[in-house]
């Protein structure tokens, strides 16, 4: 029962969605849309499950005094502050339980949830991702050593695209006469992106698409069951 019913649900739903593609009449005609709506609602609960699980894991680490447990208190407090601000005073477009609370908006200039989002979340996320620029520099040093034909191609393509897509590219090749316009770095970068890159991406897309189709069939037919877990 614990495995058979979920397997049947997957088979039934997957088959209905596939069949509905070929029968544009009721009830099949709009079944895909209905199931898509249900999928969205359950996914919403799945996101909440993820956040609650994070809360639970952090709480467990604090209660067991795991290494660096003090830091997890900070994430729990921030999570709760964001939650309380969002529920009580709402967001930019949504009123909270205490409606729009103009007094607080006049104090912060924004709703508390949006204030935290603008000055903390935006700055933190942009800095986190910009940090990768430094690690990419060291990764490039390792990856861009032209040891064989393949890595040389990778190096040349990356350098040409980077130069061609910035102002330095047009400055470097600006002196080349118009009769040799195809040697301008921006044009070379465009050629790489339009044809060479598209060819590689297209091969990956077609093969990955076939892979997804194969995996979907395995799931619908119950051959692939790993999503059900161990027991």
């Amino acid at each position: 029962m614990r495995r058979q019913i979920p397997l049947f649900i997957t088979f039934f739903i997957g088959t209905i969605i596939l069949v509905s593609e070929f029968i544009p009449h009721k009830p099949f005609g709009n079944i895909s849309t209905t199931l898509g709506g249900w999928f969205l609602i359950i996914s919403g609960f799945a996101i909440i499950l993820g956040q609650l699980n994070l809360f639970k894991v952090n709480l467990t680490k604090i209660s067991r005094k795991a290494p660096n447990w003090q830091y997890y208190i900070i994430s729990l407090v921030c999570f709760l502050i964001m939650l309380v601000c969002g529920i009580l005073w709402g967001t930019l477009r949504q009123p909270g339980l205490l409606y729009n609370s103009e007094g607080l908006v006049a104090f912060f200039g924004l709703k508390p949830f949006d204030y935290i989002f603008k000055y903390l979340f935006e700055n933190l996320s942009a800095t986190m991702f910009s940090l990768l620029a430094f690690f990419m520099a060291s990764a490039s040093y390792r990856a861009f050593r032209a040891r064989n034909a393949e890595s040389t191609l990778l190096l040349v393509a990356a350098v040409l695209v980077m130069l061609g897509r910035t102002t330095i590219g047009s400055t470097l090749t600006g002196w080349i006469p118009d009769s040799l316009t195809y040697l301008h770095l921006p044009n070379i970068a465009n050629f790489i992106m339009e044809y060479l890159n598209t060819a590689g991406q297209r091969a990956i897309m077609i093969c990955a698409g076939l892979g997804v189709i194969g995996s979907s069939l395995r799931i619908i037919l119950g051959i692939e069951r790993s999503y059900l877990g161990g027991r």
Binding site: I5, P6, L7, I9, T10, F11, F12, I13, G14, T15, I16, I17, L18, S32, L35, G36, W38, F39, I42, S43, F45, A46, V212, I213, S215, S216, L217, I219, I220, Y227, L228
Partner: peptide
């Protein structure tokens, strides 16, 4: 049961 519905829908739609 919920995961089965999500996985079934995803498999059908992705196909």
């Amino acid at each position: 049961y919920s995961i089965a519905l999500v996985v079934g829908t995803t498999a059908g739609l992705f196909f």
